[in-house]
């Protein structure tokens, strides 16, 4: 079975502590979600913005330890980012956390959820 040995120390730390996880309360938060049926990965991202930039990020997730660690990393780094430029470098994130290529699809789920939340904050021009 997959044991803790399959993951880096940083992935295990983020999986155990899940910094930033939870559902925020307040009128300024917007939610985005995405999922991937094959691995049953589900991600909910909550964003709050100030002056066109991400002010805070929270999340809920059903996924493997790699997915949880990646989402925690993204949530910690998003604050300060411009809403107009929220592209995640999925491959760099995978390399940083030692996520195998077979799991890249799960990181795109995170990207989709972030984009969906950002769209709620700054709807695209018609």
């Amino acid at each position: 079975m997959t044991g803790a040995g399959a993951y880096s120390a940083e992935v295990l730390r983020l999986f155990a502590t899940t910094p930033g996880a939870g559902v925020p309360v307040g009128p300024d938060w917007r939610r985005g979600e995405a999922s991937e049926p094959l691995s049953a990965t589900r991600v909910e991202v909550y964003l709050r913005a100030e002056a066109g930039r991400v002010a805070d990020c929270r999340y809920r997730v059903r996924g493997c330890p790699h997915t949880i660690a990646a989402l925690a990393t993204v949530a910690a780094r998003l604050p300060g980012s411009s809403l107009a430029d929220l592209a995640l470098d999925v491959r760099a994130l995978a390399a940083e956390l030692g996520i195998p290529p077979e799991k890249l699809g799960r990181l795109f789920v995170i990207q989709d959820a972030v984009r969906a939340a950002a769209l709620q904050l700054a709807p695209a021009d018609p």
Binding site: M1, T2, G3, A4, A40, R62, G63, C64, P65, I68
Partner: peptide, 18 residues
């Protein structure tokens, strides 16, 4: 309602199969 890998990783004290 849970991911299998996450469940197993959450149980490092158990030697079981998946």
């Amino acid at each position: 309602g849970v991911d299998g890998e996450a469940l197993r990783c959450e149980l490092p004290q158990l030697a079981v199969s998946s």
